[in-house]
């Protein structure tokens, strides 16, 4: 009898240990169309799947609210309220203050290549309305440049004042900020691991994937859509952001005009096909990848090397690839 019990116990334990060897439950995936793009969150934790789905639903709502109030494309947004009366002193939300602080820091680091006051130039180029057929008149660009200058932003704690004619535009970073907010919220809710993808160009990692391995993200080639040329495994808290010349652009007389403007010249950056930044903050990564894309290659390489805990992959306009010094050990080239 004892032997029979032992045998049953052994069989049972072997069977269940076999089950443990299988992959754990896949993450719960939630995606939604918000902030003008597709947002996807993969998450897992000790919670039942139904509870996780509710948490993800709330996270999406949070991202939508945060992103919308910072968007120039939302008529009732905080940004648009400020832009209507830029020279008035305004008390801004903590969300906007934080984004502006990051934006102004990157503006300074990039010597104005990225500038959160780029609004007047973006209005002129109209990349977001219809695809433009030709660049604006050179004189119009020069005129608008007078209204763009991050050094004329007066931000003291939550008190903001611009000058007449200026306009904020932080579209380059508001999705990254929404991703940071989502990750913080998921952590507060006790979610063990999550991968937050805000649009197709920003991704933020929390914890690990279900099997305890690192979240693995593929980098698509800028000229070969759908083809992944490299992969990076993200540690807890790390983020990736890509700025490229292939999402929004138009071609005129054989020249490609991407939507990312060098705010110093008023013209699109044309040195790179794509710049991908690895950092520990999505807002920062979004701002930096935009700045680097708008810069000249040597200055961009130098800036990344100056910054701590930041790495980057540059694909030059010629198609050549350059990695920052610490990226070589992180990037797995697949081609």
């Amino acid at each position: 009898m004892l032997r029979a019990v032992l045998m049953i116990a052994l069989l049972g334990s072997l069977f269940w240990s076999g089950c443990d060897l299988s992959s754990p439950d896949p993450p719960v995936v939630k995606d939604a169309f918000l902030l003008g793009t597709v947002v996807t969150i993969r998450a897992h934790g000790d919670q039942p799947d139904d509870e996780l789905r509710e948490i993800l639903e709330d996270t999406m709502t949070l991202m939508d609210e945060v992103g919308s109030q910072l968007s120039v494309y939302e008529p009732t947004s905080e940004i648009n309220a400020i832009n209507r009366e830029p020279d008035q002193t305004t008390t801004v939300s903590d969300d906007l203050r934080y984004c502006l602080e990051i934006g102004l820091r990157i503006a300074e680091k990039s010597e104005g290549a990225y500038d959160p006051t780029v609004g007047p130039l973006v209005d002129l180029w109209r990349f977001y309305d219809d695809e433009p057929e030709s660049p604006p008149d050179y004189r119009d660009i020069q005129e608008r440049l007078d209204q763009v200058d991050y050094r004329r932003v007066d931000l003291q704690n939550n008190t903001l004042q611009l000058e007449a004619g200026m306009a904020l535009d932080i579209e380059a970073i508001n999705k990254g900020y929404a991703a940071d907010q989502a990750r913080d919220y998921l952590r507060q809710q006790g979610v063990s691991g999550a991968l937050v993808s805000a649009g197709v160009s920003s991704v933020a990692a929390l914890g690990t994937a279900p099997e305890g391995r690192l979240w693995r993200v593929g980098l698509e080639h800028p000229r070969r859509a759908g083809e992944v040329y490299a992969a990076i495994n993200l540690e807890d808290g790390e983020c990736l952001s890509t700025s490229g010349d292939y999402q929004r652009y138009f071609e005129h007389e054989g020249t490609r005009y991407p939507h990312i403007l060098d705010a110093r010249t008023g013209w699109p950056g044309q040195s790179f096909q794509a710049v991908t930044v690895l950092a520990d903050n999505s807002t920062f990564a979004d701002a930096l990848s935009t700045a680097l894309f708008a810069m000249k290659p040597e200055a961009a390489f130098e800036l990344v090397e100056q910054l701590e805990d930041v790495e980057a992959v540059f694909i030059l306009a010629t198609g050549e690839r350059t990695l920052s010094s610490g990226m070589e050990e992180r990037l797995e080239i697949l081609e």
Binding site: S201, G218, E220, A225, A231
Partner: peptide, 13 residues
């Protein structure tokens, strides 16, 4: 499908 070691959780471009 069942992810393999070299598959991706997400892609970015």
């Amino acid at each position: 499908g069942e992810p393999g070691e070299r598959d991706f959780d997400d892609t970015i471009r």
